[in-house]
Each structure stands twice: as structure tokens, then as C-alpha cells.
Nucleic acid binder design. Structure first.
Lengths: 215, 215
DNA sequence: GCCTTATATGAGGCTTGGCTCATGTTTTGG
DNA sequence: CCAAAACATGAGCCAAGCCTCATATAAGGC
């Protein structure tokens, strides 16, 4: 699974709960933490396999080896477990981007394209639930905007410090495109009955590379 | 709305129904045809606004000014009305591609990129339900494969007859990419709270143009 | 006019799935 | 060891939504 603490922080801030705003209950004991981890792992599988709507709380609980009541102990709504998972992946993804920054600073655009394409689409492919959750329609607008802005900003920052540096405004636009290209890559990778899958992905990578290589 | 006959043909082939395979009942009288048209138009709106899962048969009927029973008269399942709509859009899209062919034959790749980007993403933006229905997870595998293969083939054919002609194998790969780029374009166009939307779309178009321009 | 077939209607059957709650069991602090 | 808090359990409540059906009404064909 992905990092534990990153999302543990997202679950019910330590102090007072503001009003009675529904939030995930944070586990207090070791057993609880293990449960939460198992539940999140199970949810990740079920969401990835069935999508958000078709995923059922009953199956998530079952796959985690927990009762339905135990699931609701920590995640009072289906929406909340989706949010917790999404926040976790989001943080992990951001962390990966941050780790990438020092390694690619000052490199030419083409190299940047290769690295982004390989590492980021690798992450998304390894965590299909992330894409599912990020794409769902009924996601909270505010949260979505913030998450998206953060990722865009990080990618734009990487692009801005390429060898022939890219102007910030253009880097922002390119970041949006990179994100969409990655989703396409994941979709292509997961498509069944697609001949020459590898060739298509290679072509996609080449396209981005060529575009970033050109000033 | 889109062409009527294209999907009228998809609704319950004229002869015997093979076994008792559930299929949309074809209207026999004028009143019925009007109903079907209204129902499809309503379904298109509701699917586009809410997605397949969240769309309800009750709302589709209401928006068409019909009773729920009347809706089920012509479309015995939710799945069937989705299929009918999707088939209609699919045919219309294919028709548009066919109409494009003579107009772009022998033109350079860059021009082709511009035309494809403008006309096709225009079509998708004008018919958002098409994208929603094409993307839904529980779509019939066989049907999806066929539809996809047809569109890919048509786009590949356009690319193959560009001025410096593109080899068929590569054209097929590029066709897959073009389809995905178009979906990205529609997504970007529909994204709210996205600064510089126009600039992003322009960048996307430029990327495809550059890639197709290079041999 | 009359019979047949197409179309219209909406109350309700029925399943699914999110969620609650009363009743346990385990763990911890003192 | 014991009380309190954390955690576990699963039967079942409940709303939503797909779909059926008995009962109309409109529209041809003769």
C-alpha cells in the first residue's frame, strides 16, 4: 500500500470537530489502525475494479475481513472513504513529484518528458483507484480544485526549470496537458483488445517529447 | 438532435427478433416515432448532465413529457436506451468522418491535425452524452470493440492519405492517440475553474499539429 | 361503425445497497 | 482486577430506482 501517515493526517483532525461536520473517525489503538489500513486497501481494490458507483460498502468490508459495522466505525459514509483514499494517493503523488524535482532540474525538455511519462504513468498504473476516484463526477468542487491546482503547480514548476526554461504561463498550460496525457496513457495501457498497445504508448511519449523539446 | 434514421435502423431490426433477446421496440405509428425522438433527446440531456449511473428513467420520461410506462414501451431497459443513443451518435460521428475524407485527402499532416481537432472536438462538445456513454464501464465488450475499431479505422484512413503519406501501422497508432486527445480536449473545455482554458486547448492542438507535421 | 393493434398511464412490486443500532468483546489506565 | 473507552458484529431499517402490469385511449384497416 501507499504511505500510512500521509492520510492518517487527513482523518479527523486531532482537536475539536468543527460543528458536526461528518468526518472519518481516527483510530486510537493499534488494532484500529490496522483495520483502517485493511479497509483502505480493500476499498482501493473494489473501487478500481468496479468504479465508485458500483462499488459496495458490503464488499469493501468483506474484502477487508471486517464487518459492515466496523467499516462504518471509521468511515461513516461511502463518500468519506473515497475521500480518504483519494487524499492519500494525492499526497503520495505530490511526494513523488517533489522527489523528482531535484533529479530533473536543468535537464532538457525531452528528458523531462521521458521521466514524467515513465514515472508518473507508472504511479497511476500502479494505483488505478486514484484515477477512478479523481474522475468521479460527484466529487467535491472545492477539494477537486485544490488538488488539481497543487499537482498542476508542481508539474509546471518542473517544466519551468527545464534547460531552455519554459515561461511560467506556458508551463501551467503544459502541465494541464501532461496530466491529461497521463490519463490517456493509463487508459490505453488498460484497454483490452487493443493491438500494438506498446507502439501506441511509444507514439504518445514521442509526441510529448517532441513538443517539450521544441522551445 | 442528430439524424433520426441512423438510429431508427438500430431499433429492433425489421424481421423476426432472434429468440427473445431483449431489444428496443420499434415505433409503428407517427405518434410513436415522435415519442421515441423525444425520449432519446431527453435521455441525451439527462445522461450528459448526470452520467449514466445517476441518470434515472423517471427523469428521462418526465423530461420527454411521457409517462414511465411509455418510456418502457419503447426501451425495455435503461441499458437499451443508452445503447440506442450511443449507436446513433456513433453513426453520426462516422458519417462526419466520411464527409471529411474527400475534403482533406492529399493535404499535409498539419492541416489534417487542425481539421480533425476543430471538427471532431466540435462534434463531441456538441454531444456530451456521446462521451459519457462511450466511457461507461459496463458497456458491452463486443459492441465497444466494434465501434472503436470502426472509428479508429476511419481516422487511420484519413491519416494514411496525408500528403507525405503515413504508413498504415503508424496511422492506426496515431488514430488511437487522436481519439484520446479529443476526449482530453472535451474534458478541458468542460472543466470549470480552469484559467487560460483557450491557451491550453491551443497548446494541445499545437502539439498534435507538430507531431503530425513531422514525418 | 367495429375490431385490432399501437400507444399511454401510473400505482406499486421488488431488489439493492447505504446506513443504524443494540448488543457484545477487547484493550487500556489506574 | 475493574471500569471505561475503543472496537466488533450483523440483523434489519429505509429510500431510491428499475421495471411490471392491469387498465385505459387513440388510430388504422375493413
Amino acid at each position: 500500500m501507499t504511505s500510512q501517515k500521509s492520510s492518517a493526517g487527513m482523518i479527523a483532525a486531532s482537536g475539536r470537530k468543527p460543528a458536526d461536520k461528518v468526518a472519518a473517525r481516527a483510530p486510537q489503538r493499534e488494532r484500529g489502525r490496522a483495520r483502517v489500513a485493511a479497509l483502505l486497501a480493500a476499498a482501493s481494490e473494489v473501487f478500481a475494479e468496479n468504479g465508485y458507483d458500483a462499488a459496495t460498502m458490503t464488499e469493501i468490508a468483506a474484502r477487508a475481513g471486517a464487518s459492515i459495522g466496523s467499516l462504518y466505525q471509521f468511515f461513516p459514509t461511502k463518500e468519506l472513504i473515497a475521500e480518504a483514499l483519494h487524499a492519500q494517493y494525492s499526497d503520495d503523488f505530490a511526494a513523488m513529484l517533489a522527489g523528482l524535482a531535484p533529479r530533473v532540474a536543468g535537464k532538457p525538455g525531452a528528458t523531462l518528458a521521458d521521466v514524467l511519462f515513465r514515472d508518473l504513468s507508472g504511479f497511476l498504473t500502479a494505483h488505478p483507484a486514484f484515477v477512478v476516484l479523481a474522475d468521479r463526477r460527484d466529487i467535491d468542487k472545492k477539494r477537486k480544485k485544490k488538488t488539481h491546482a497543487r499537482l498542476r503547480g508542481q508539474i509546471a514548476a518542473l517544466l519551468a526549470q527545464a534547460d531552455p526554461p519554459i515561461a511560467p504561463a506556458r508551463a501551467e498550460a503544459l502541465a494541464v496537458i501532461v496530466l491529461h496525457l497521463l490519463r490517456s496513457a493509463v487508459a490505453i495501457a488498460g484497454e483490452d483488445d487493443l493491438p500494438h498497445r506498446a507502439a501506441v504508448l511509444e507514439e504518445l511519449r514521442a509526441m510529448l517529447r517532441r513538443h517539450l523539446a521544441a522551445a
